[in-house]
Design a protein around this nucleic acid. Structure first.
Length: 352
DNA sequence: AATCCGGGGAC
DNA sequence: GTCCCAGGATT
């Protein structure tokens, strides 16, 4: 039964699997050239909690700028963060850089072909270690991501709620593993989760494994997997300052702390982020920006100020988060800095 | 086991 | 507005 499951899935994948920049489709089955582990690793880190469409441009940029792991290891962290800016979850970029250096210093620039050793790399957890093992080295690894959790929770009509159900789903997925083409199989499941076994409105009528699925075609299939309700976001507010120098041709930019939210990324100075509305400022009001993080809804009141007035404001006891790492930058040169999306919004507002 | 950590596309 | 996406690190 499980043999037929993987066979039908792989047949579907051979005809319907997507062509992706980092993918060597069906290399185990057709003796195509093996994928570059560096490409597999880079794409998997970028794809953590991020959709394929978003990743494509960043993947192209990174592979062009840093064609191999040695090149990436030699880069400065600021360069890597600048290239990653806008992609989110910036610990991924810091760990990516750290991992590249680790691969070069400890493994001679070669990714280990062992799931257990891959798991020890910075930024590589259970999913990514299994994915690299299967996709880059065609090793028999149990690859379980959000798509695959959804598929197997439906196949066996699992009533347990995520995330507590993860361990049980992992064991279910293990039963269905094939005896060959491990990398293709993992990618086939993920493509199936995107194209057929979608969160809403799954296409059970054309699903290649519908005959093995308890919930195929059922009215309530999209209620699986069941999930524990999530907490509401904190609502925080702040003042953000677009501070211009005496010549009126540069703005004040600074580096955020190494750890925590947007760690080591660049920002325009802001007051502490608090639940209550921040105090009004005697300055030009540029407007209000709302930005949604994973666990925070942030409202930014943006003010334009000249440097002397800003200094007077700060010296007068108005609380502003200031970094030791400050610099003046021409607005049209901000592309060279690691600005996260919320700061790009501030920039756009100030420049228009 | 809970919480922190981005951003955007689909609906 | 809600959901969720090729999750990992930290506590």
């Amino acid at each position: 039964m499980y043999v037929k499951f993987s066979q039908q899935l792989l047949n579907w994948y051979d005809d319907n699997g997507r062509d992706l920049p980092w993918r060597v489709k069906n290399y185990a089955g057709r003796q195509n050239i093996a994928p570059d582990p560096y490409h597999v690793w880079l794409s998997e880190i970028m794809l953590q909690q991020t959709v394929v469409a978003t990743v494509k441009d960043y993947y192209a940029k990174f592979t062009q700028k840093w064609p191999n792991v040695q090149a990436l290891a030699t880069a400065q962290q600021d360069e890597v963060l600048t290239a990653w800016a806008g992609l989110g979850y910036y610990a991924r970029a810091r760990n990516l850089h750290k991992c590249a250096q680790y691969i070069c210093s400890e493994f001679g620039g070669n990714f280990p072909n062992s799931e257990t050793i891959l798991l020890t790399l910075p930024g590589v957890g259970p999913y990514t270690a299994a994915a690299i093992a299967a996709i880059a080295f065609d090793l028999n690894a149990n690859v379980v991501d959000g798509n695959i959790e959804r598929i197997f929770s439906r196949v066996e009509k699992l009533e347990d709620e995520l995330p507590a159900a993860k361990a049980k789903i992992y064991k279910i997925a293990k039963k269905y593993l094939p005896t060959a083409r491990y990398g293709d199989y993992a990618q086939a499941l993920m493509d199936l989760g995107t194209a057929i076994c979608r969160p809403k409105n799954p296409k059970c009528d054309i699903c290649p494994i519908a005959e093995f699925c308890v919930l195929a075609g059922a009215e309530n299939v999209q209620n699986y997997p069941k999930k524990t309700p999530k907490k509401p976001k904190k609502q925080l507010k702040t003042n953000v300052f677009w501070v211009k120098n005496a010549k009126n041709d540069q703005v004040l930019l600074q580096k955020r702390p190494e750890k925590g939210l947007l760690g080591n990324m660049m920002e325009f100075p802001s007051s502490p982020w608090l639940p209550q509305k921040p105090a009004e400022v005697q300055a030009k009001n540029l407007g209000l920006i709302t930005h949604i993080f994973t666990h925070i809804k942030l409202e930014m009141q943006v003010w334009e100020m000249a440097e002397p007035e800003f200094e007077t404001l700060v010296n007068g006891g108005f609380e502003v988060n200031l970094s030791a790492d400050k610099q003046w930058v021409k607005p049209n040169e901000l592309d060279g800095f690691a600005l996260p999306s919320l700061m790009q919004k501030v920039r756009k507002l100030a420049e228009t």
